[in-house]
Computed example of a mutant assay.
Amino acid sequence: MTAVPIRRRSQVDRSAETRAVLIRSTIELLQTVGFAGTTTAHIAKRAGVTTGALHHHFATKDELMFGVLDHASERVRARLEQEEHISSGGTLNLSDVVRHLWEVYGDPEYWAIWEVIIGTRSDPAMHPRVVAHRLETMRTVLHPWLERHTSGEGTRPEVIALFEFMLIAVRGLSLERFLDKDDAYFDRNLKILADLVGQRLEALAQHDFVR
């Protein structure tokens, strides 16, 4: 029997894996000990690497924080690109959209993003960069997706504004987790949100049709 050769991982693969472990460890620490307690020493220990190895991949704590923000952006992109969001007619299925947004923004993992945003609020150099990163995610991830799946040039800005409102509501609802609300509470409010946004979208579509 011919032996199957063992495929060795490339340096690129190992580097990507280490970066992923460091980002995951950073997210876990942000969730449990907060921004101030998430030091590079603690991150390295949790990831099982030396601080030297950590700084080889991320020169500073700030760079690691942006790695966490990039990870969150990619999660949003992956969710939005799933086919379940779009019906066969090309119309947004609000229940699916709200549910998938909740799976990202309502996940306790997203608390790490709030920790970065709030934890850097007194840093005049870092905080504007964090805010700009989140706005860039809206511009490059959310807006293009909406434009691909909405019709009517006249109402498109209103649809984007409505979608941003939906994000605000979902993110705000996620903070209710700190009050130990049960799943039924979140399901109920997510349904209300989908119904309200759906009604507004129908009104916008009708207005665009009449014009």
Rank of each mutant, 00 (worst) to 15 (best):
L175E: 09
I168T: 12
E176R: 02
S151Y: 12
H85N: 15
V130W: 01
R79D: 15
E83V: 12
W111Q: 09
G119F: 05
V130M: 01
G154E: 14
I118P: 00
G154I: 08
H71Y: 15
E81Q: 13
A184L: 12
M65C: 06
G172I: 03
L80D: 00
F163M: 13
M126P: 03
G67Y: 02
T140A: 06
L193S: 07
L142W: 05
Y185E: 02
G119D: 07
L175Q: 11
H85C: 14
H71T: 12
R139E: 15
L142H: 05
G106F: 00
R148A: 11
W102L: 01
E84D: 14
E103T: 09
R79K: 11
I192G: 06
R177L: 02
L193K: 06
L80E: 00
Q82Y: 05
R139I: 06
G198S: 10
S95I: 14
N93I: 10
W102H: 08
G119T: 05
L101Y: 00
L101S: 02
I160W: 08
R79V: 14
E164Q: 13
L80N: 01
V97K: 00
N189T: 02
D187K: 06
I192D: 10
K191W: 03
T155D: 01
S88L: 13
E153W: 04
V76N: 00
E153M: 09
D183C: 02
D183T: 11
G154R: 07
G90Y: 05
V68P: 04
H143F: 09
A132L: 07
V97F: 02
E103G: 07
P124L: 04
H127Y: 07
D123T: 04
T150I: 10
A132D: 12
W145C: 03
G119K: 05
G90Q: 10
L94W: 03
P108N: 08
T150A: 04
G67H: 06
D123F: 04
R148P: 02
D182R: 06
A169C: 15
S122H: 13
L173K: 05
V76Q: 00
S122L: 14
T140E: 11
G119Q: 09
A194Y: 03
F165W: 12
E109C: 05
S95R: 08
I160T: 10
I118G: 04
D180L: 13
D123S: 09
L92D: 07
N189E: 12
R139D: 15
D195H: 04
R77W: 03
H85G: 14
I86T: 05
I192C: 07
A161V: 08
T150R: 01
F163Q: 03
L146M: 15
K191E: 15
V76D: 00
A78E: 12
N93A: 11
K181M: 14
R134P: 03
L167A: 14
I113K: 01
G172C: 09
A194T: 08
E109A: 13
E84K: 02
D182K: 05
N189Q: 13
